[in-house]
Design a binder for these strands. Structure first.
Lengths: 254, 254
DNA sequence: TACTGTGAAAGAATTCACAGCC
DNA sequence: GGCTGTGAATTCTTTCACAGTA
């Protein structure tokens, strides 16, 4: 029932009344990925991006201090994060850039490509379909759907817009693992339901509503208005402090 | 120096070496906003959206249980969140919908409009410029900039694309309070620097790099690739569990 | 020497559970 | 009876600081 907001992160799902979450989230999966805290997972993706630029710059090794600065986190936090991968730096030297990069890739499940279905071919859909960052990280946008018959058949990059009615069939045929909802709010829940019915178990939601899904499905949400409102809060807080500051005559450290 | 990722949330900023964060984040601002935890701020925006739909549906009151379910959180968490606003429900009844909505609006600083400058008029820029959610929440996209002379002068909704060279002047003239960076990675840092130089102190960054800013500036980041990678991690974890499950012959609760 | 990896301490966020009020 | 508001308990996350090692 629950949806995981983009600004937080929690284990699997929780039922409506709040009872019983995380089926077995904390037990370790034997193979290789130890139980990695949610907060750490999000940062691993960040480190990976920095590492990729280092690989391109032919940098061979990097210290936790350097990598942390480039990623905008503290070095202790970075080391702790990496330690969950049972990671392998060299004391006195640092981390082997490409080795660490592939370790993280593996931990995040990026060692094989993911097929992505994108629903909603409006402005946002176009932007997402053309977003290089997806392809670079192993995500292939394989299908693009829209409700609007006028848009069906339109070419967007390498894709052709299909009608929503094909969604169920195409998702199964193409073995889609991730669905992206970029529709208006009104359509989002029904699109989501169809994705779930087609076997899609991971959804990235851009629509400004909270999607209701069964416990077996993971939803992440990107909410632009929420991001802006958090900024607004900080503007307001800053303004309030300004006022108090001038009243006191004290100056806040610049 | 630090950047606040979209998936976490931390106080003001921390210097490169990790020393000394949050200037005075925990002290209360006299006027009205008590120190509200970062995690709570993000959720308040969410509650507000649900409340808005309730207002439209002419619902007069709502219980914490109902509101929490609609927002996809537990009811205890919701009540705790609201309690930071010194909030005002009625025991045995619930919350007055419109009263609570305006309380939250006030706490988030949404009681007056924010002028937003958007930099980058590519696909994403277009999508953002046309995003209704901004206007609905009091954010007016007031200016739109691009580097590319070919795009300057193009109309996007009510806006006309201006050249980046005008950024400094226009930001000051229009008293922009929030800047949105929707440029390619290569241009992002320099755009950010110019925004900061023009007095913009809150930035929403869509470019896939970590922006370096002075402590006085707040950055929030939306990173689409990171969101996808977190999903990928869950796909992988799920797959690993599947395997183990079949090995054991046990079936995980559906 | 310069750096990693990690226990142990500190700090946030979440959840519980119940007193208090309508 | 039903529901809010909140201390106290719990769990998650970050930070510290240092033992250990190439």
């Amino acid at each position: 029932m629950t949806e995981r907001s983009a600004t937080r992160g929690m284990a699997h799902a929780s039922s409506t009344d709040g009872t019983l979450a995380r089926t077995a989230a904390t037990d370790r999966v034997s193979d290789d990925a130890r139980s990695v805290p949610e907060a750490t997972v999000a940062r691993l993706a960040l480190y990976l991006r920095v590492l990729t630029t280092l690989v391109e710059a032919k940098t061979a090794t990097v210290s936790s201090e350097e990598l942390a600065a480039a990623a905008g986190v503290g070095s202790a936090k970075l080391r702790k994060d990496l330690s969950f991968l049972g990671s392998n730096g060299t004391r006195g030297v640092g981390y082997d850039v490409s080795r660490l990069a592939s370790r993280i890739e593996h931990a995040l499940g990026l060692n094989h490509r993911h097929r992505v279905a994108l629903v909603g071919a409006g402005n946002l859909g176009h932007a997402l379909a053309g977003y290089d960052g997806f392809a670079e990280r192993g995500f292939t946008v394989t299908a693009l759907f829209d409700n609007d018959h006028a848009r069906v058949g339109e070419r967007v990059g390498e894709l052709v817009v299909r009608h929503l009615d094909e969604l169920d069939r195409v998702c199964v045929e193409l073995d889609i693992s991730i669905g992206v909802v970029a529709t208006p709010a009104a359509a989002a829940q029904s699109v989501c339901d169809r994705l779930v019915a087609s076997g899609v178990r991971c959804i990235l939601n851009f629509a400004p509503i909270v999607l209701q899904v069964p416990d077996t499905v993971d939803v992440r949400k990107v909410d632009l208005a929420v991001e802006m409102q958090v900024l607004s809060f900080h503007v307001a807080r800053r303004a309030a402090k300004q006022v108090r500051t001038t009243q006191n005559g004290t100056v806040v450290v610049p």
